[in-house]
Design a protein around this nucleic acid. Sequence first.
DNA 1: ATGACGATTTACT
DNA 2: GTAAATCGTCATA
Length: 214
Amino acid sequence: MASNNSQRGSRRLGRRFYRRGSVDLAHALLGRTLVRVLDDGTRLAGRIVEAEAYVGEHDKAAHSYGRRRTDRNASMYLDAGHAYVYFTYGMHHCMNIVADVADEPTACLIRALEPTEGVEVMTAHRASKIAADRLRVTDLCSGPAKLTQALAIDRAFDGVDLTTHERLFVEGGASARAGEIVAGPRIGVGYAAEWADEPLRFYVRDNPHVSRPR
DNA sequence: ATGACGATTTACT
DNA sequence: GTAAATCGTCATA
């Protein structure tokens, strides 16, 4: 099935969009479209339906807790609108979008997308790990490491500027209505003591593509 | 040099 | 529900 071009009128989001705190940015990202252009020009894209905010040096769940700065997380200190892509569990990549201003290490983890373009290619990328006949559309991008696999995003994209990069960026379009955004505790940060319960995970209510529905 | 640990996903009981 | 997969990164020495 051919991908449609219904988003063709949308414009890439610029620096001004990203220049805000990570909580605000996480809200604002819901409903926007993450776009990955492959080397052959194929567009893979999905509507962001789930994101988490990591609020910086005081956040025990953040890689930048206590202003920790290493080769791995250096991208968190870049200006707003850059990508922070890291490798974890020996096999998975996760993508963040840096918020705020340079040297303020806050970011939003992109946790789920509703696929909109290039579903067949995403399926092929994902089917290398799962039997193709078991794959449903809701299995393609319903998790932070699933979506990077589906969109072929790895550490080669760590530190790229989403406001200028030709192969990875976010397009505008309608953001999610405030009334349909649900807040809850972040996933997989049980080690973060009191920060584990902060409602910094945001997702679109009843959307079947979020990592943990209902 | 070494050891412990993941901002996860998948398969299996 | 539990556990395995799998290895770069980081803290400690």
